[in-house]
Design a protein around this nucleic acid. Structure first.
Lengths: 260, 260
DNA sequence: TATATTTTCCGGAATATTCGGATGGTCGAA
DNA sequence: TTCGACCATCCGAATATTCCGGAAAATATA
């Protein structure tokens, strides 16, 4: 359990408590103690301290994650230059196309949805900002894989079996490696039904100064994405959008908007 | 510094590190050690462990908060029943009015923006989900103060001096207490230029089962909010919206949508 | 009311944290 | 390039902290 004898177990456990609180959606000391296999008196000490920090709330004997997490995440996002420059563009495209527009970044070998903008009638099949998914299961992730350095991409594809989300998910490393080349040639990626049945996606890389910052994508029902001319239309729109994002990212304002 | 000798200092410090990382937006052990007045070797132990947990990233010698925070906040929000029921309604109103629609909850005596939906051309003066503000500085907060139990509201108003955000901010506890009565009679609150010059707000309480769950508000330029008939129009729209939210909250679906 | 269960509190033993100091790496100036 | 300053990282030993069993209080259950 305790791998490195030099790391502070108290901290590791405290964050494990946070993780468990996330899963249980609130619990008392005894339940948490059982889950983590600790005496409940010890768990009590942890909870009491976490409560003191303000990251955990206590209401009628139940401890849960505090909305302070929202504040932390909100501030981070608000200060994120990529998000700030991408957001107005994403809104534009979302309203223009009436689809779901997403901004995905790579974190820890997986895809993380940094932001989403939904057109008024856009469909949203349960994805949300903050959600993490395996890179190989959708167009955005494949674009990221394509523009990641060869060794990193290789490591991600060859390391262990790749999750299968639907029967259309591509889980063969060689096939994915080949697709990687095609994506780099064309400059974009498309998929449908590979992550969620009924959902398709067109994605382009956000390259600024040769460096990959993430991927911009449009999500639409699979049927629409398979329509060649519509697909082409959407592709153009996000490509133009990425161009504007790229310019504004480099030459735009301060990047750190005012705090309220 | 360490008030309660029974709380775990290691945990308190670890979270203080998170707070400092938030402010500094990334730093090395030495800088953080200075800020927290600890030896940098100790700080190193903390950072190393925080990195292990995945809540802090290390890139070229700089430690910063990890995007994992987004995941935590995103999941919490995604599971929040109030958010889930309010969101589609907020979108509707935002697109209908072309203004900024907000959902504010009370946390720790302050107002926390749980969610925002912006109409295509809505103005947004730097507020963002997760941001916290003093309750007495805007309509949403005043609505919350009005429907909070008397003793809690009193404690918040009488405890220490009230922050002044603009020259129009009401900072007199008696005036605020009086306004509280008026709000309860009318069932809504309005303000302009009290939090930010040029910004006005109309807010109504979200009462479900007699319990206050938060406030729904529309933000618009002060000029438009002062226009009586427009104000009335917006008020009606959010009141209707809250009615629908209230119904869907009670009788709606599971409340916990699928995880991706 | 009685009983079971859970939360909270406490003291002392065990041990995980802590800190000074050593090491190796990086950057910039000369 | 060499030198010096600064910083991240590593290590071992002293000791302040955590940790746990068990008691008390509070709450739920019967």
């Amino acid at each position: 359990m305790s791998d490195d004898p030099r790391s502070l177990t108290t901290i590791r456990r405290a964050f494990e408590v946070l993780d468990v609180l996330q899963e249980t959606n609130g619990a008392g000391p005894t339940e948490l103690a059982k889950r983590m296999d600790l005496p409940s008196s010890t768990m009590y000490d942890y909870l009491r301290t976490l409560h003191e920090t303000g990251y955990v709330t206590r209401e009628d004997g139940e401890y849960r994650l505090s909305p302070r997490i929202y504040t932390m995440a909100g501030r981070m996002k608000h200060r994120d230059r990529l998000f700030q420059t991408a957001k107005p563009e994403m809104k534009r495209v979302a309203n223009d196309t009436n689809e779901l527009v997403g901004l995905t970044i790579e974190h820890d070998g997986r895809g993380l949805i940094l932001h989403q903008e939904e057109g008024p009638q856009a469909l949203n099949l349960g994805t949300y900002p903050g959600a993490m998914t395996p890179l190989h299961t959708h167009a955005s992730g494949k674009v990221i894989l394509a523009y990641l350095p060869d060794d990193e991409a290789e490591a991600l594809l060859r390391d262990g079996p790749l999750a299968e989300r639907t029967e259309r998910t591509v889980t063969d490393p060689d096939a994915l490696w080949a697709e990687r080349e095609r994506i780099k040639e064309r400059g974009y990626a498309v998929d449908w039904d590979e992550q969620v049945i009924g959902m398709g996606m067109i994605a382009v890389p956000i390259l600024i100064d040769e460096r990959l910052h993430g991927a911009l994508n449009i999500v639409a029902p699979s049927g629409r994405v398979q329509n060649e001319s519509y697909q082409e239309e959407l592709r153009q729109k996000i490509e133009e959008s990425v161009n504007r994002i790229s310019i504004n990212y480099q030459y735009g304002g301060s990047g750190t908007p005012r705090e309220p």
